[in-house]
Design a binder for these strands. Structure first.
Length: 318
DNA sequence: AAGACGAAAGTGGTTGA
DNA sequence: TCAACAACTTTCGTCTT
């Protein structure tokens, strides 16, 4: 993935020329959830992998976090206690160091008791700490923006509450939460993509995803081929015209009903392959299959299908 | 030599009895 | 629970550019 000089991107956002260098007209729009800048008229993705505004450091405990953070405490679902807990110490002394007498002591006992009950202390907190640090690590590596991270954290908490994490690897459930969160934000990543970064295999990840879906009753939109187009085509560095053409091919395909039951990535890859040829912006089947995380064979099968069923004229002589 | 093609066998998931 | 099934993958030999 290309990295742009991200430091400048955000600061100079307003002073950017509003004209797309690809199509010459059109207006540029920043899509923060995907970390991309997009031309509204031709659809070309002009920059991606934009600044990750999260901290560049990692921390494994509250103490480390507090030590490293250079700003005040935000309230975030991604912190094990949402950053809001108060701790009552164990000594039977008051603020001046004097021992407490009988009455004060029983009061403190009572407060301590309720405080401990109010945080399902130990195991859950420990679990969340590990999970949230893994969540940050994974999503940084995948370039997942904060909004999607928060949703992922929310999903993880839900899973934890429903005891879905018991007996499963924390990492696996975290990865699954990220996967689901991406789908909810209609910025789908594929299982294989996330599995390659997480310490779980694709099969295990899929099982965790279904476990969460079943256990929590969360509803997520089914990923469609069209939502995969921006991601795949920006990896390939395609022309804007090629991208929009691929999108319209998928539109047609859906109307004709060619997309049912097929892997969205296969359809997306095939549509891109076709529009690459039509727009004379050639990419090999291998390049596309890599970007779409499917095999060349699948690209071939799908694109034959599409060409046949949509009656697309393919002219290879150009 | 690289890319495209398609056959054959294998895999994991879904469906229906 | 099992078998049948569709979609997809892997592998590999062949053809095309």
């Amino acid at each position: 993935m290309k990295m742009t000089t991200t430091a400048n991107v955000r600061v100079r956002k307003r002073s950017l020329s509003a004209v797309c260098p690809n199509c010459g007209n059109g207006e540029l729009v920043e899509d923060r959830t995907r970390g991309e800048r997009i031309c509204v008229s031709c659809g070309s993705v002009l920059a991606h992998g934009m600044a990750d505004t999260g901290p560049e450091w990692r921390a494994f405990s509250r103490e480390e976090r507090d030590l490293r953070a250079r700003t005040g405490a935000p309230m975030s679902l991604r912190r094990a206690d949402k950053g809001l807990s108060t701790v009552i110490g164990w000594g039977n002394k008051d603020a001046n160091g004097r021992s407490l007498g009988g009455k004060g002591r029983t009061a403190i006992y009572r407060m301590r008791k309720w405080q401990i009950r109010s945080q399902t202390h130990d195991s859950k907190q420990r679990n969340l700490k590990l999970a949230m640090s893994e969540l940050d690590r994974l999503s940084s590596q995948l370039g997942i923006p904060n909004s999607i991270r928060e949703t992922a954290a929310h999903i993880y908490r839900k899973a934890l509450d429903k005891r879905l994490v018991r007996g499963q690897s924390i990492d696996g459930i975290v990865a699954a939460s990220i996967y689901l969160s991406c789908r909810i934000h209609v910025a789908p990543r594929q299982l294989a993509e996330i599995a390659s970064v997480a310490k779980v295999d694709k099969k295990g990840l899929g099982m965790s995803v279904r476990r969460i879906l079943r256990g929590t009753g969360i509803r997520v939109p089914v990923p469609s081929a069209i939502t995969l187009i921006p991601r795949i085509s920006s990896d390939l560095g395609l022309k804007g015209r090629t991208v929009t053409r691929a999108a319209s091919i998928i539109d047609d395909a859906r109307r004709v009903g060619v997309t049912d039951g097929k892997a969205p990535a296969g359809i997306a890859g095939a549509a891109l392959y076709i529009s690459c040829i039509l727009e004379n912006d050639r990419r090999t089947q291998r390049e596309i299959s890599n970007a779409a995380s499917v095999t060349e064979v699948t690209i071939r099968n799908r694109y034959k299908d599409l060409v046949r069923k949509l009656g697309i004229e393919m002219d290879f002589t150009q």
